[in-house]
Design a protein around this nucleic acid. Structure first.
Length: 430
DNA sequence: TACCATGATTCGAC
DNA sequence: GTCGAATCATGGTA
């Protein structure tokens, strides 16, 4: 159906045309002689209104409003307007969803700010805390609840602001719709046009909403960085944890690269994460190497302590298993120099075990080998290095000329597999 | 408050 | 990926 026919069809109701006649334009024109004359009159009257006085115009307006052709003419004008103006806009109006809004929505949803309540964002908080690798404990609990509270606050503000915007949008939309409906009595405004106007208003308000979402996202990011930046919430490990780590470090001084299993065990013992264990060893190795002298005392202390512990355990085990052969299963002879005398005493050295060079020759059980290694290491670092290196009995693990740890023999401990630094010993999951 | 200790992060090398 | 090295940022203490 062409425009002309459509227009005529709009007038059909008043012109007494049947639906069957509408399909034939000639028939319509023939039968519409009178209505066509009426339309001309109406248009002339409309044009003449501007030349008349206000009272006259009002009277004319009223007369026009009451004219039997008015609704038909109105609907035709609406249709023409719809086809000419609004159809052009229509294509442009149907925008795809804004990707930025989608991103913001997703983020707010993930953080538990928008969408259904997730316990005040506790899931997000927990995930974030886990990602940060923070140590568990009382402090972690406090900060966790603190983070949750702040997030809930942000959520509350966001929702109240959103509600305000929505309310304002709805009020404004209603107002505009009422206005347009009111005006639609005097000028051709179709329901579709009103719908479009509503859509435009919603778009404008959604851009304001985007700003709100952006601000909320920023607030969440700031909150996250404040609470989850590990540097900001650094806490020293407790004494026991440090002791456990130091014990391991100094008892594996020849090769202080704990395996994954060892790290996990240490992490469990110290109630910290594997990453923290890795960090600790990384820091320890570098600081120890940088200033061996400073760590000497500590090294001696832990070497002796570890040796004592191991010796007592070994003695107990020997007594329990085979009192007659305390050193059964010994792996070989090791020499100790004077610097390790104290520890050697703890290890149960007897004067008869001293060799001609004044070094101790001892049959060591395999379980004591790491401690002996440590003593060798410590000894070498203090005064006895030249003596030890001249001894064919001992080929130590050591810091080589480039000051890096080298493993000349086998690793000193079963929990610390062989291999140079960098061979999948640990992870620094930063 | 200055200084040192220490846990975490970053960066380049491998 | 891990490592060493440098650096940052905070905690603890004199």
């Amino acid at each position: 159906m062409d425009d002309q026919t459509r227009m005529l069809a709009g007038l059909a109701g008043l012109g007494g045309l049947s639906q069957g006649d509408i399909g034939d334009p000639d028939s319509v024109r023939k039968q519409l002689g009178q209505p066509q004359q009426d339309i001309g009159d109406i248009l002339q009257q409309i044009m003449a209104i501007t030349d008349e006085s206000l009272d006259e115009a009002q009277a004319r307006k009223h007369a026009l409003n009451c004219h039997r052709m008015k609704p038909a003419l109105f609907s035709v004008l609406c249709e023409i307007k719809e086809k000419t103006v609004l159809s052009i806009r229509g294509i442009q109006d149907e925008d795809p969803p804004d990707p930025q809004i989608m991103r913001l929505d997703n983020m707010l949803l993930a953080e538990g700010v928008s969408g259904p309540e997730k316990g005040g964002g506790s899931a997000a908080a927990a995930a974030a805390a886990a990602a940060a690798g923070g140590s568990p404990g009382a402090d972690g609990g406090i900060e966790h609840s603190d983070y949750r509270a702040k997030l809930a606050q942000i959520r509350q503000i966001y929702h109240s602001e959103l509600e305000k915007y929505e309310q304002a949008c709805s009020e404004f939309t209603n107002h505009v719709m009422n206005l347009l409906r009111e005006q639609s009595r005097t000028r051709p405004i179709s329901p579709k046009e009103i719908e479009r106007m509503v859509a435009i208003i919603h778009r404008k308000f959604s851009s304001i909403q985007m700003q709100l979402k952006q601000s909320t996202c920023e607030a969440v990011m700031i909150l996250r960085s404040r609470f989850l930046d590990a540097r900001r919430k650094r806490r020293n490990f407790n004494k026991q944890a440090t002791e456990v780590l130091n014990e391991y470090f100094y008892s594996h001084l020849s090769n202080p690269y704990p395996s994954e299993e060892a790290k996990e065990e240490l992490a469990k013992k110290c109630a910290i994460t594997v990453s923290q264990v890795s960090n600790w060893f990384g820091n320890k190795r570098i600081r120890y190497k940088k200033n061996i002298g400073k760590f000497q005392e500590e090294a001696n202390l832990y070497a002796v302590k570890t040796a004592v512990d191991a010796a007592s355990v070994s003695a107990q085990a020997s007594q329990a298993n085979s009192p007659a052969t305390p050193n059964s299963g010994s792996s070989g002879s090791y020499s100790l120099s004077h610097a390790g005398d104290a520890a050697a005493a703890y290890l149960g050295l007897h004067p008869s075990n001293l060799n001609g060079a004044g070094e101790a020759v001892l049959n060591i059980a395999p379980s004591l080998q790491p401690q002996v290694d440590t003593l060798h290491h410590v000894t070498r670092l203090t005064a006895g290095y030249e003596e030890l290196t001249s001894s064919s009995l001992y080929a130590p693990h050591h810091l080589d000329t480039s000051n890096s740890w080298q493993d000349n023999t086998h690793p000193s401990c079963v929990t610390s597999p062989p291999g140079p630094p960098g061979s999948a010993h640990s992870d620094t999951s930063n």
